[in-house]
Simulated scan of single mutants.
Amino acid sequence: MKRLLALAAASLAGLGTGTALARDSLGVFGTWGAFRDPGVPRCYAIAMADKIVGRKQEFQPYFTVGYWPARNIRAAVHVRLGRRLSPGSKVIVSFPEANFALTTGQADAWPVDQTANAGILAQMRSARTMIVIARGADGRTFRDSYRLGGAASAMDAAALGCANR
């Protein structure tokens, strides 16, 4: 729980969405947490990537599914990568049953369209793990791995936390 709270605070500060102290915990489900930031307002499910001993990281990688009721945004996927990306780099979210391409920033990625976003969410509800694959600025490929036990419950808690707001 402490790791998820620290990650929630860091993600809020990094996205410039207000004070990290304004968030409310909606629950912890396996390695996933759900939070509400009433000041924005927004809710999100979030998990940190599994730690890989000895791997160079510039950032704490995490995966979020966010809801912004005032903007009419529901279940928007966002990935914070562990390293800066090579210019023009592709990022792939890989599941045992499907792969999805993401559009990128310097160390962030999002689905290329709503169809990919919906496909990622569907896979997150049924798969046990997902891997985010990218090429770092140093030209080396890296992977961030996520366990999905609890992801569906965290996404549902985040959706309910911002319902009718």
Rank of each mutant, 00 (worst) to 15 (best):
Thr64Pro: 00
Arg128Glu: 15
Ser126Leu: 12
Arg125Lys: 14
Val91Ile: 11
Thr64Ala: 08
Gln60Pro: 04
Leu102Ala: 00
Leu102Ser: 00
Val65Phe: 04
Pro61Asp: 02
Ala75Phe: 05
Asn117His: 07
Glu58Leu: 02
Gly105His: 06
Asp108His: 06
Pro111Gln: 06
Leu85Cys: 05
Ile52Asn: 04
Thr115Gly: 09
Ile52Arg: 06
Arg74Asn: 11
Ala49Asn: 04
Leu102Glu: 04
Phe59Ala: 02
Pro111His: 04
Gly82Ser: 13
Ser94Gly: 09
Arg125Ile: 05
Ala127Phe: 04
Lys90Leu: 15
Arg55Gly: 00
Phe63Pro: 02
Leu81Gly: 03
Val77Ser: 01
Leu121Asp: 04
Glu97Asp: 14
Ala49Gln: 04
Gly88Gln: 13
Gln106Ala: 14
Phe59Thr: 00
Tyr62Trp: 14
Pro69Asp: 06
Glu58Asn: 06
Tyr67Ile: 08
Ala76Phe: 08
Ile73Tyr: 09
Asp50Gly: 07
Met124Asn: 03
Thr115His: 09
Ser89Ala: 15
Glu58Val: 02
Ala109Ser: 11
Asp108Cys: 04
Pro96Leu: 11
Leu81Thr: 01
Gln114Thr: 14
Asn99Lys: 15
Asn72Arg: 15
Trp68Pro: 01
Ala98Asp: 14
Asp113Lys: 08
Arg55Ile: 01
Val112Leu: 09
Met124Arg: 03
Phe59His: 00
His78Pro: 01
Ala98Glu: 13
Val77Ile: 15
Gln60Cys: 00
Asp113Gln: 07
Ala75Thr: 12
Ala76Tyr: 06
Leu102Thr: 03
Arg83Ala: 00
Arg80Ser: 01
Gly105Ser: 13
Glu97Lys: 14
Asp50Val: 07
Ser94Cys: 10
Val53Phe: 12
Trp110Phe: 14
Leu121Ala: 08
Val93Tyr: 01
Ala70Arg: 13
Asp50Thr: 10
Arg55Met: 10
Phe63Ser: 00
Lys90Asn: 13
Trp110Ser: 10
Arg83Val: 01
Asn117Trp: 07
Ala118Val: 08
Leu85His: 02
Leu102Gln: 01
Val65Gln: 00
